[in-house]
Design a binder for these strands. Structure first.
Length: 282
DNA sequence: AAAAGCCCCTGGATGC
DNA sequence: TGCATCCAGGGGCTTT
């Protein structure tokens, strides 16, 4: 499933190529998680300014060419979420949409297409990032883990205010974004923290280790091209190779790489958690 | 405010 | 072999 590194790798794989193009046509397949929020024709003629990212959302910024006169051009943004099974393709010529291709946008530079069998993904149009439609999805998000705003002191302070199990706080995304189920398990292993421990009961020393682990694991995963744990590929169709680096996720019953103890699997918030009962006592 | 549970969906794995 | 059942998971929403 796409987590922050996969989304970032996807962005890097097509952002430069689509920037500056003009939207020619938009086609929709079966309904995604949310409706597009505007008629598909509304996008036609708009210019693609660039692609940025906020958490696991890709933000495709658009601009309608001024109709004439001095009026400032209207700007808009497409919020793209890959959900659990989504992937983007961008190419000059793509074959006809398949049964799982639910959003297709032809531009002068190529076609951008969302392939999403489980349809947990979404493509939503908003007039701007300040628009309530965008704020509903982005407004509550925490700090970007790979930005210079992700500071140890603030991270510790936030965690000390939360009583929920630390893994659930990571997944909630309101302290730090982009840490999904796989990476949450991995970073807690690296920091030696038991996933079930209340966030505010974790020592400051280990919270600082966790902060460093989040930066290290996510940036490493980006440089590796993302995870292939769930058939991930970037918009060029290339696969990442992070899966071999997972130390606990999906390894229940197998020996811990550090101490040899069998990795344990539990369920938290209807999601599986894998951890080493010996290495993760903090 | 924060925490916990619900629900959307379907390919792949498992069990009979 | 073919069927039914279960499971995975992101994250906004509702309820506590």
């Amino acid at each position: 499933m796409p987590e922050l590194p996969e989304v970032e790798v996807t962005r890097l794989s097509f952002a430069d190529r689509i920037a500056g193009s003009q939207v020619l046509a938009v086609g929709l397949g079966k309904p995604l998680r949310w409706p597009l929020g505007c008629p598909p024709e509304h996008l036609c003629g708009q210019r693609v300014l660039g692609v940025s990212r906020r958490g696991k959302y890709l933000l495709v910024s658009l601009q309608r060419p001024p109709a004439g006169g001095g009026a400032s051009p209207e700007a808009g943004v497409l919020l793209v979420h890959l959900g659990m099974s989504g992937s983007l393709q961008f190419a000059k010529a793509l074959p006809a949409p398949g049964v799982h291709d639910h959003f297709s946008m032809d531009t002068t530079a190529g076609t951008l297409r969302l392939h999403d069998p489980r349809r947990f993904g979404a493509v939503v149009y908003a007039d701007s990032l300040a628009d309530p439609v965008a704020q509903r999805l982005l407004g509550h998000l925490g700090v970007e883990p790979l930005s210079t705003d992700f500071l140890p002191d603030a991270f510790v302070a936030h965690m000390k205010q939360r009583r929920a199990p630390i893994k659930q706080v990571l997944l909630a995304g309101d302290v730090v974004v982009g840490v999904g189920n796989i990476y949450a398990c991995e970073v807690l292993f690296l920091a030696g923290i038991r996933p079930t421990v209340r966030a505010d009961r974790v020592s400051e020393r280990r919270l600082r280790l966790l902060h460093a682990a989040i930066r290290q694991v996510l940036s490493q995963a980006v440089s590796q091209g993302g995870s292939t744990l769930r058939n991930f590929s970037n918009a060029d169709g290339q696969h990442g190779n992070f899966q071999s680096l997972a130390k606990v996720y999906g390894r229940q019953g197998q020996p811990c790489h550090v101490c040899g103890t069998p990795i344990r699997r539990i369920v938290q918030g209807q999601r599986s958690t894998c951890y080493c009962p010996v290495c993760q006592r903090g």
